[in-house]
Design a protein around this nucleic acid. Structure first.
Lengths: 193, 193
DNA sequence: TAGTTTTTGGAACGATCGTTCCTGATGAGT
DNA sequence: ACTCATCAGGAACGATCGTTCCAAAAACTA
């Protein structure tokens, strides 16, 4: 026997960064060879093919969702925690020189309509975020900080929707008013609480 | 002289439908030849190259934005008109067997971060919708139907954001609750008015 | 240390990519 | 009807696509 010389998760992380920046179709195997430092044969023997590597990369991206879920699960004012999440997304959109956006949003619009495996992976991400938001909003309603008139699940879905909208406008709204645009969105959205 | 045997706008429309369904990178010239009925040489002599054809297709998609702007410019309750727009997007996402979504949203996430020409085209679409919404919301505030506390431009941006979020969740949220998800989003968003 | 198994890098596969070019067909002008 | 500029179709370009294969290097077992 001979042991592997690399950690598959680390390779998937490296591939994730390549797909994140370029998208699926626009990324070539050569891009992935250079981005991961592995040869073609090692990539194929480990991940089967390009689709398999992409799906594994998408699974590794769940770590980003996990970080957001943990942010929302922390102590503090529910409204402030949600604002923190929204602001962090706005800052990411405005500050990332690579303009990658969110891999889940990118994967959704590029592939989820035609690829069932990708559709399931992105849906899982959305659901995890939705559940964390719902829990947090329920806590806010029970403490009286958030108006209890609304279904917390509906509010959670609304904020997931707002976040994904920001991923689109963060890339596509006119550059001169992009920052103001995202701030307006955050302020209006938070007023639903 | 010999006159053209086709109308460039109609060819661009046909190309638009192909790009709309497959995206930019995943669409081959062969797909466009079959989708437009034109030969390679005619496509290249008319639109220069694949990028040029895509940009022209994106310009033709402005007709969709125009239809939405006209909907918002019609008579009727501002809140109802906005609801109509949101519902029409939800119905499109739920009902389109091709699962195309919105070409502007697709173009934004796939290309706007790396392609300045595409970025300008999508920004123009967003701005047109934002202005129509702003005008409508202002009218609602003046008639007293909509609370006048908020900046109408901020509200307009918020609704553009909501619409684009729905384009993501319409493709990516779990299928079993997708319809309810979009309805929840619409209800919460409309309560900001 | 010799033997064995697995991984590795890179060459090479056919297919398809975006693009160009050439040829015959076409229709307007005289 | 003849000319001629311009058209459309499809063959063909080199490059690159995703994928496979193979020989050599490496590391564990005995």
């Amino acid at each position: 026997m001979r042991s592997k010389e690399f950690e598959p998760d680390e390779i998937a992380d490296a591939a994730m960064r390549v797909f994140w920046q370029r998208g699926y179709a626009a990324t070539s195997i050569q891009d992935l060879v250079e981005g991961t430092g592995l040869s073609r044969s090692s990539l194929y023997s480990t991940f089967e093919n390009k689709q398999g590597l992409y799906q594994q990369a998408l699974r590794r991206y769940e770590a980003v969702t996990t970080a957001n879920v943990e942010l929302l699960s922390g102590a503090g004012s529910p409204r402030d925690l949600i604002r923190q999440l929204l602001v962090s997304v706005a800052e990411d959109e405005l500050g990332d020189p690579q303009r990658r956006g969110c891999l889940v949003a990118n994967a959704t619009l590029e592939l989820a309509g035609h690829d069932a495996a990708v559709a399931e992976l992105v849906a899982h991400n959305f659901l995890r975020l939705q559940k964390a938001l719902e829990k947090l909003i329920l806590r806010g309603q029970q403490s009286g900080e958030v108006a209890a008139a609304r279904n917390p699940r509906a509010l959670a879905r609304f904020f997931v929707n707002t976040l994904q909208g920001m991923r689109v406008l963060g890339k596509g709204s006119p550059l001169t008013q992009r920052s103001q645009c995202l701030m307006d969105v955050i302020d209006v959205a938070l007023d639903t609480l």
